[in-house]
C-alpha cells in the first residue's frame, strides 16, 4: 500500500498546468483532491511518472449558482447548498464521508469517472456541459454524454484538463428526487437513481449499477456485478430506486 515513486509539480496558473500536461502527456496525471487518485497510487493501479497538483491553480476555483470550477470541493458546495439546483444539494451528502468531501472536488470526481460516483450521474441528469482545455487545441465544451466514455474513461486527451462544469438554470417549480443505497452512509453506492421534472419533461438517471450512469428509458439499463453486489441485485435495486425517484418527483 505504498505508491511507486513519481515526480511532483505544483503549477500556480492554468497556462503553467497546461504546459506541463502538454510536455508530459500520458506520463503525467493531474491531482485534484486526491480522494480517488491517492488510493489508486497506493495500490499501484496508477503509476504516473509525474503528478501535476492543481491545488494552486486559481483559474480552476470559483463557483456561481450555475457553474463550478473543477477544483471546487464538495464541502465548499455544501456550504452553498441554497444556491445549487436542489437535486445537487441532495446528492452532496452522499459523496463520501464529510472528511472526504473536505478534499474531494467536482472536477476530480468527473475526471476519475467512477460508475458509482454521484457527480457523473448529476452531470448526465442535468445535461451539464464540461469545459476542457489543452495548450495546443484550446478550449472545447462537451456534453456529459460526450465526456463519459466508459468506467474510469473520459473523452479527456492526455494533454487536456477539465476546467469547469456548468448546468442549466434551475427553473422555479421544477421537481426532483434522489436516492441511493450504500452499505454505510457515504460509502460507494451499490445502486442509485435521480430524477428531474422540468417544464413537464421527466428525465431520470440510474447509476452505480453498470459501466456508466445511464438515462432511464423503455429499454431498461445495463448492469454489472462485482464483489460488492451482483448484477441481479443491481438490476432489482436500480429498478426500485428508479421507480421511487420517478414517483417522488411526479408528486
Amino acid at each position: 500500500m505504498k505508491s511507486a515513486a513519481f515526480d511532483y509539480e505544483r503549477p500556480t496558473s492554468l497556462p503553467e498546468a497546461l504546459d506541463l500536461l502538454d510536455r508530459h502527456g500520458e506520463d503525467c496525471k493531474p491531482l485534484a483532491g486526491g480522494q480517488s487518485l491517492v488510493p489508486l497510487l497506493a495500490m499501484r493501479l496508477a503509476r504516473p511518472r509525474l503528478l501535476v497538483d492543481l491545488d494552486r491553480v486559481p483559474e480552476l476555483r470559483g463557483f456561481t449558482g450555475q457553474a463550478a470550477g473543477a477544483m471546487t470541493t464538495n464541502a465548499q458546495l455544501e456550504r452553498r447548498a441554497g444556491d445549487l439546483p436542489p437535486v445537487i444539494a441532495a446528492a452532496l451528502p452522499h459523496i463520501g464521508h464529510f472528511q472526504i468531501r473536505n478534499r474531494g472536488t467536482v472536477g476530480g470526481s468527473l475526471a476519475h469517472l467512477d460508475p458509482a460516483g454521484e457527480w457523473p450521474a448529476l452531470a448526465l441528469l442535468l445535461e451539464a456541459e464540461l469545459t476542457v482545455e489543452s495548450k495546443r487545441r484550446g478550449r472545447r465544451t462537451l456534453s456529459a454524454g460526450e465526456f463519459m466514455r466508459g468506467p474510469l474513461t473520459t473523452a479527456l486527451a492526455a494533454d487536456e484538463l477539465l476546467i469547469s462544469v456548468s448546468w442549466p438554470r434551475w427553473p422555479a417549480g421544477a421537481r426532483w428526487a434522489f436516492a441511493e443505497v450504500a452499505r454505510r452512509p457515504g460509502d460507494f453506492a451499490l445502486a442509485g437513481a435521480a430524477c428531474t421534472v422540468i417544464a413537464g419533461r421527466t428525465r431520470a438517471v440510474v447509476f452505480a449499477v453498470g459501466p456508466l450512469p445511464q438515462v432511464a428509458g423503455d429499454g431498461g439499463f445495463e448492469v454489472t456485478g462485482d464483489l460488492h453486489a451482483s448484477a441481479a441485485y443491481r438490476r432489482e435495486v436500480g429498478k426500485r430506486l428508479l421507480d421511487r425517484v420517478m414517483t417522488q418527483a411526479a408528486i
Partner: peptide, 9 residues
C-alpha cells in the same frame, strides 16, 4: 478540517 491523512500526500 477533518481529512484522511492516508489520502493526502
Amino acid at each position: 478540517d477533518a481529512v484522511r491523512a492516508c489520502l493526502l500526500l
